[in-house]
């Protein structure tokens, strides 16, 4: 059946649905790098980030997206990281950012 064209379309829902189970690979990342839980979204990592000047890379946002189970852009954004490690010096809560980035970019995602 060819859908009728009414001249408008249904918009996608923006709501984050926390009822959805987080994927296994994401849970594994948190297991392998539990310091991720320390993040409080202060933004110090992004303020100092070299990649952030030119790309969508903001580590605290990767972290937030991971917490909320929003994984579609996770790997792509993490790839912009050049692993310089400045953020790790800046992080007031001692998140092992470089390791977390490595995990996000390298872990097997379906």
């Amino acid at each position: 059946m060819c859908p009728l064209n009414f001249g408008y379309s249904v918009s996608e829902v923006k709501v984050i649905d926390l009822n959805q189970e987080k994927p296994v690979w994401l849970k594994k990342i948190f297991k392998l790098e539990p310091s991720l839980y320390r993040c409080i979204s202060c933004g110090n990592c992004a303020a100092i980030c070299t990649a952030g000047h030119f790309t969508e890379m903001k580590f605290y946002r990767l972290c937030l997206n991971a917490f909320r189970g929003q994984t579609s852009e996770l790997k792509n954004n993490a790839k912009a990281c050049i692993l310089c490690g400045k953020c790790q010096f800046a992080c007031p809560r001692g998140v092992n950012i470089r390791h977390a980035i490595m995990l996000i970019t390298q872990i097997q995602q379906p």
């Binding site: 923006k14 709501v15 984050i16 649905d17 926390l18 009822n19 979204s41 937030l64 997206n65 909320r68 929003q70």
Partner: peptide
């Protein structure tokens, strides 16, 4: 509203 994510949120 998840003000850091800039998106609404729901949960049961």
């Amino acid at each position: 509203e998840d003000t850091l994510m800039n998106r609404p949120l729901k949960q049961n």
